[in-house]
Write a protein that binds this DNA or RNA. Structure first.
Lengths: 211, 211
DNA sequence: AACCATACTTGACCAACGGTCGAAAAATGT
DNA sequence: ACATTTTTCGACCGTTGGTCAAGTATGGTT
């Protein structure tokens, strides 16, 4: 069965990159290094991937496969309150958010933090665009059920996603946990008042402390 | 006078890069090429800049120097209504927003659009972090004058800046002008209702069509 | 003028990179 | 047993970002 076997190696390469990303920045990871970590020859990498960038793309996609899948399923769970689902959706994402993005790099790497820029960019693009339909659907149902009052569910979904994803990512505006909390609380307040949601409903959105 | 002279060459290098960016993507622009365009030797580049990345950083910084400066001044103009200043602040930025970011690249370059990711990332980081203090100040004054009702001016400023900057940049979520308009209108509605602003005050924020 | 220290310029050079390639080696089919 | 396809590989290539020793201009001091 060439299909599963191909996926085996494919995943091994992604595993290798994922592991290396916990130690170094991508710019400092060479294709040879990935190959070495994966235990295969450098040439083989290019049998499975067209370019180095494509490996990263695939890794990001794989990382969010599960949370995005569950997020999309959430949209169908009409028995749960819309904003509870919304909170669950984000919690599902948070788990894998910084899995391979090491912000606090301990290595004395002289490279600037901007090196990771395109990784973050890809992450943000991926999460926001993939989650928007699901969140839009949830909000739509909230509007229909009378829990939320707002004219444009798509716009609201996008606003919420952009703010939360950007703050969650914490690369555009590096912030302390307190500052993140402040912005999130601000967003909650704005949402509750701006969409006539019962106060406190959105407290689920508050990011629980970690680490 | 070594100071002005140094700035001369310094700017010549930035000019060269800026010009090249209208033709090619950064990844495909070599340092030698920049040097050639600037009419100097490659080695001299590294007399003025520590790295290739630093040139790009400097160019971005230079590009937003003026609009950011005027934006900061706006915060002091207490005689204008807060949200009018807010709108002016953004209009000032829009002009130079995509000056050197050629989205519609005509060259048959095979590189993916993601190549520009870190440029956009830098742009967003720069604009949001630089504008946040000014906007926070404006909102604070709006709260004091009773025009705006909100607890956390900093959080509100950040929310607005994140949403608008991301949508304005249009690289995280490539959208049609109509879609951008919808999100902006949604943000306006959310803000007006969520902060007890007189309806219509924020219509200035609506991005005027262009091109 | 002669001198000198500092500021600036340069292109050959280097190590390292992403990516290619032809050939070898597994794997598979018959 | 052979033939064909799939997979593996590392030497190799062109190019890159960055270094450097050697050079040239500049301008002050005597």
């Amino acid at each position: 069965m060439p299909d599963t076997k191909k996926h085996e190696k494919y995943d091994m390469i992604l595993d290798a990159l994922q592991q290396l990303l916990t130690e170094k920045k991508i710019q400092n990871i060479s294709v040879s290094e990935i190959a070495q970590k994966a235990g295969i020859g450098k040439g083989s990498i290019y049998y499975y991937f067209p370019s180095k960038d494509a490996i990263l793309d695939a890794l990001i996609e794989r990382s969010y496969e599960t949370p995005l899948h569950t997020a999309k399923n959430l949209a169908a769970q009409t028995d749960i309150a819309p904003f509870t689902r919304m909170a669950m959706l984000f919690q599902a994402c948070r788990n894998s958010s910084t899995a391979f993005i090491k912000e606090n790099n301990n290595s004395p790497d002289n490279a600037s933090a901007q090196d990771l820029a395109f990784l973050h960019h890809k992450y943000l693009t991926h999460v926001i665009s993939e989650l928007k339909p699901a969140l839009t659907e949830i909000i739509k149902q909230g509007i229909e059920s009378g829990d939320i009052h707002f004219d444009s569910p798509a716009a609201l979904a996008e606003i919420v996603l952009i703010v939360l994803a950007v703050k969650l990512d914490n690369s555009l505006l590096p912030s302390t946990p307190d500052e993140i909390e402040e912005t999130v609380q601000g967003l909650i307040a704005l949402l509750e008042k701006g969409t006539d949601i019962e106060q406190g409903t959105l407290s689920y959105l508050s990011l629980t402390p970690y680490e």
